[in-house]
Amino acid sequence: MAGVDNAERAGRFLALYSSGLLSSGATTLRTERNMLRMADSFGIDVQLTILPMHCEVSVRKDKGNGRLLFSEQYSRGINFNAITAMSRMSWKVADGRLTVEQAERLLSFVKAQSRYPDWIVAFAAGVANASFCRLFCGDLWAMAFVFLCTVMGFWLKRCLIHRSVDVRIAVILAGMVSAITASGCYIFSLGATPDVAVAASVLYLVPGIPFINAFSNFMHGHYVCAAAIFMHAIETTACLGIGLFCGVMILNNL
């Protein structure tokens, strides 16, 4: 069994690692497995408690029955690149190729990695939502308007979140903007499927991965986390519904 100092350092690292993984949108199953794999490698006895807004790692001290408790908060986000990098790191630790110090430095490096440039992501979101529109049998005009409304709504949401506006309000405003822009098909009488354009205009805001994560956590027995993520997803869906509804009301009411 590792000494107290090593156990404390390893426990602190594992808490940071678990919160980092959960912040990137990993499931509780993957977080547990990766963390316990590394704990085995460090030679420490740990227990992981995953709660909706924070996680706790409990490490047994070297002698006696005392335990050290490390708690880290995490926020919800999706970053599969970080999940991949952290999963690889857990295997390197498990295979004895990284010490705690090296793993700590690598974790800081992984967390500091930047994402794709925003304009590329906005363009990709536009293409994806336009493809969605086509999957619902929209024509070329509907796809063009959906592309435009998605780019605009995505960029607006990003700007508002950077300005620390509440995410829910940002989703409502983005949904409203997307609905009004996609209604251009109706306004200018372009294309044969304007209703598909309006219906598909907000689909990029649907929180698909939180829904999947919620059900996945439910299947693996983490009911509290599953319920929390599910409620968050329902909240976001309600916000986009409200945004779409408000957008249509503004255009139709007068």
Binding site: A124, S131, C137, T193, Y204, I209
Partner: peptide, 30 residues
């Protein structure tokens, strides 16, 4: 509305997924 056919469904389903994967910051090679 007419159905879009399986080939278009194949292509646009793949495009939609790749686009949303980029939002989720999936690695470029994946």
């Amino acid at each position: 509305l007419t159905q879009i056919g399986i080939y278009q469904d194949f292509i646009f389903g793949g495009l939609a997924s790749a686009g949303f994967a980029m939002i989720a910051n999936v690695r470029l090679n994946a």
